[in-house]
Design a binder for these strands. Structure first.
Length: 646
DNA sequence: TTAGCGGGCGCG
DNA sequence: AAAGCGCGCCCGCTAA
């Protein structure tokens, strides 16, 4: 009858009154690997609690009432157990909310699945369908849709009364499906050989199982701690900005309506297109992609608006309106709902979404908060340390460039790094021939002029040339390895296409190993089907053999980029693991609370700041040190807020 | 009323 | 003919 390739034993049910409960507790205590899942009041990790939970091992599957949870407390404290989850961080937050802390290992089938099949969905139900052809009704189909009026708790409570067996079956399916996936995916990981991007690679990664078990499993707990700690938000700071921001936005909207002579919503792409290209008959600079319908329209993006900002008042107004409303919606009016009762926000770090192995961050996304230079309200100033504590912010200096040097072994670039030169100034010197000291001096003078300590004319024409060379080479480096075309490069550098092409030729002439690396990366991906990182993480790129040229070219650019971006992610990940293993939290009350790709933020007692800053810097610089052709460098600062610490 | 998509844009 | 990569969020628009 069943179409799926999986058996589903009869489901057991227990609560605190079940006479056999002590037997189950004893059995779980004797079982080394147990799958577990929770059904909860909602999805907010710092607030919601379990209502039911389910277990599966061997041929047993059961749903338990939350009232049975306390009887397992000792079992959860046992250190040598492996608890198998689908999205381990979520369930362990929910359990921690009722005082249950898991000492054993946190296995996660979503993380496993992401290592093997980076380009597919990693949700529990999708994985089961993919592996076994087994799909059971999801939460919504079982309990009804969660809306503003009907919470997850409401839905489950109703099922409790109306169709209890259905609830019991649903919860047990989740744990059972998780267990079956774990068994299958573990096998597949063990049978998946991999290798490092570098020949002199870390020797401890031979299969994807090694990567999973040695890196990703402990990393889940590190992320859990980061999420749990959260970051303190200065509520007064936000409250002070809010009315000012709202007023500025309203003033701009008034100006826009006056200019248009009617009500014009500046957030509407369509209305803007009508205005600029219909009413004003402006010349489009480029077209949008067209999307599903394939209808390409003239773009009203930032580039277009900036082009007309000086001559068309509306363009200038819309430009300002965009940057203000973006910040307001996301970080001023939006952030309050995400704060816990102690004023902290708890972002979710997603370990299995970015194809390169990077993290992503959501609710809120802490990885795209504006930099201070661009942000008139200085939102980073709202991220603070509590009284008597301090924030330490440490970030890698040009991590991707250093890894590119390692991957390409380009002698010029390696030399620049070994000399301890600033990478972009050094590269500019190597490629355009200006003496390094002269570029450095030009940069110094520029800084003084900007500060107002020196007059404008302190910057000579020659110095100006030096600075242009430095900016050019910085853009060139990123552009070329990732496959940017000469057209876009010309636009980025504000030069002609012919000039851009000449600069590309010069760059490749002086740094030939860079383009060689890129070609090797593409060739390896064509041969193996994968792009590899330093830890042997691999990204499936089947489109590299596509007969469609645009698809193939995109895959080629991804094949160039992934080893660098992914290896950078590996480095930071290893650094976080090392810092966690040092036990800075238990030994010095110093807690990691944020990762922004190449930057880590810790919160510590004020008096420990200087020591801990040095400690963090040292251990961030050490991952893979014996395997890399050039050293890594970390810049660490501290302060009361994110703004001050940088 | 809601879901999904696309445009646009912030970060590294 | 045209070509950086990787994310998440806001908004408007459209379909159901």
């Amino acid at each position: 009858m069943a179409e799926w390739n999986i058996s589903t034993p009869t489901t057991e049910y227990y609560d605190h009154t079940s006479p056999d409960l002590h037997k189950i507790v004893a059995e779980v205590a004797d079982t080394p690997e147990v799958a577990i899942d929770t059904e909860t009041t909602g999805l907010t990790v710092w607030r919601d609690v379990p209502l039911y939970w389910s277990l599966a091992w061997g041929t047993r599957r059961m749903t338990l009432n939350v009232s049975a949870l306390p009887y397992f407390e000792e079992v959860f404290r046992m250190p040598n157990k492996r608890w198998i989850f689908a999205n381990a961080k979520y369930d362990t937050h929910i359990l921690a909310n009722v005082g249950v802390h898991i000492a054993g290992e946190l296995a996660d089938i979503q993380v496993q699945h992401a290592l093997l099949y980076d380009d597919r969905s990693h949700s529990l139900k999708d994985i089961n369908e993919e592996l076994f052809g087994w799909r059971w009704a999801d939460f919504q189909d079982t309990f009804g849709r969660i809306t503003k009026k009907q919470s997850a708790e409401d839905r489950i409570r109703r099922a409790e009364n109306e169709n209890f067996p259905l609830l019991v079956e649903y919860a047990a399916n989740d744990a059972w499906g998780t267990l079956q996936c774990y068994i299958e995916l573990s096998k597949q990981l063990q049978n998946a050989p991999t290798h490092s991007l570098f020949r002199n690679s870390p020797p401890y990664i031979e299969t994807l199982w090694d990567l999973y078990q040695k890196v990703e499993v402990p990393y889940t707990k590190v992320l859990w701690k980061n999420e749990r700690n959260g970051v303190l938000i200065d509520e007064e700071y936000i409250a002070k900005i809010e009315p000012i921001a709202r007023q500025e936005i309203q003033a701009l909207e008034k100006a826009i309506n006056r200019e248009a002579g009617r009500v014009l919503n500046p957030n509407s792409t369509k209305q803007l297109q009508d205005y600029f290209f219909g009413k004003l008959q402006l010349q489009p600079l480029k077209m949008t992609k067209g999307g599903k319908s394939g209808v390409r329209n003239p773009s009203v993006d930032k580039g277009f608006l900036e082009h007309y900002a000086a001559t068309v008042p509306m363009a200038n107004h819309v430009l300002q309106h965009r940057s203000l409303t973006k910040l307001y919606g996301t970080y001023i009016s939006g952030i309050k709902e995400l704060m816990d009762p102690h004023g902290r926000i708890h972002t979710r770090y997603n370990q299995d979404v970015a194809r390169t192995g990077r993290l992503s961050s959501a609710d809120p996304n802490l990885q795209n908060i504006p930099k201070a230079e661009k942000d008139k309200w200085k939102l980073r100033g709202a991220f603070i340390a509590p009284k008597d504590r301090e924030l330490i912010v440490a970030d890698y200096e040009q991590l991707e460039m250093r890894l590119l040097a390692c991957a390409s072994l380009e002698p010029g670039m390696c030399e620049v790094i070994h000399k301890g030169w600033d990478i972009h100034m050094g590269n500019a010197s190597m490629i355009f021939g200006y003496p390094y000291e002269e570029i450095k001096e030009a940069k110094r003078i520029e800084k003084e002029v900007k500060k107002g300590n020196l007059p404008e004319n302190a910057l000579t024409a020659r110095m100006h040339e030096c600075l242009i060379a430095r900016d050019t080479v910085k853009t060139l480096g990123f552009a070329l390895i990732y496959g940017m075309g000469p057209d876009k490069l010309a636009r980025a550098l504000k030069i002609t296409r012919a000039e851009a092409e000449a600069k590309i030729v010069l760059f490749n002439d002086k740094y030939p190993a860079i383009e060689q690396y890129a070609q090797d990366a593409v060739r390896e991906t064509m041969e193996t089907g994968y792009a590899f990182t330093v830890l042997g993480r691999r990204r499936n790129l089947p489109q590299i053999a596509s007969h469609r040229k645009d698809e193939r070219m995109q895959a080629e650019r991804q094949a160039r980029n992934t080893p660098i971006q992914g290896s950078a992610a590996d480095v930071v990940k290893m650094a976080q693991l090392v810092l966690d293993q040092l036990g800075l939290d238990v030994r010095y009350d110093c807690h990691s609370q944020m990762q922004v790709h190449d930057e880590l933020m810790h919160e510590c007692p004020k008096e420990g700041t200087e020591f801990l800053k040095a400690e963090i810097k040292m251990f961030m610089e050490c991952p893979f040190s014996e395997h890399l052709a050039v050293p890594l460098a970390v810049d660490a600062g501290s302060g009361h807020s994110w703004l001050e610490a940088k």
